[in-house]
Amino acid sequence: MATEVYLVRHGETMFNQLNKVQGWCDSPLTVKGINDLKRTADALSQVHFDNMYSSDLKRAIDTVHLMKDANLVSDIGKIKKLPEFREVFFGTFEGDDINQTWDQVAMAAGIGHEDDVTKIINQVGLHDFREAIKKADPRHLAENTEELNKRMVRGIQVLGDLTKNEKRVLLVTHGDFIKTLSIKYWNRSDGKHDIIFPNNGSVTRGILHDDGQFEIVDYNVDAEKL
Rank of each mutant, 00 (worst) to 15 (best):
A2T: 11
T3Y: 00
E4R: 14
V8I: 14
G23Y: 02
S27Y: 07
S27F: 06
L29K: 06
K32R: 11
R39S: 15
T40Q: 08
D42S: 14
D42Y: 14
A43W: 06
A43I: 08
A43E: 04
Q46E: 15
D50G: 13
N51T: 02
Y53M: 00
L57R: 05
K58G: 14
A60R: 06
A60N: 01
I61N: 04
V64Y: 01
H65D: 11
N71S: 07
L72P: 01
S74W: 06
I76R: 02
I76M: 05
I76Y: 01
K78E: 13
P83S: 10
F85E: 07
R86D: 03
F90P: 05
D96T: 12
D97L: 09
D97Q: 09
I98V: 15
W102E: 13
D103E: 15
M107T: 11
H113C: 07
H113P: 03
E114G: 01
V117Y: 11
H127F: 15
D128R: 12
F129T: 13
K134W: 01
D137Y: 00
P138K: 04
R139H: 15
A142T: 03
E143L: 09
E146A: 12
E146Y: 11
K150M: 08
K150S: 11
V153H: 01
V153G: 01
G155Q: 03
Q157D: 14
V158T: 09
V158G: 00
G160A: 00
L162V: 07
T163N: 03
K167L: 08
R168L: 07
V169L: 05
V169I: 15
L171P: 00
H174S: 10
T180F: 15
I183L: 04
K184M: 15
K192W: 10
N200P: 10
N200L: 10
N200K: 09
S202I: 04
V217Q: 02
V217H: 02
D218S: 13
Y219A: 07
Y219T: 05
D222M: 09
D222E: 10
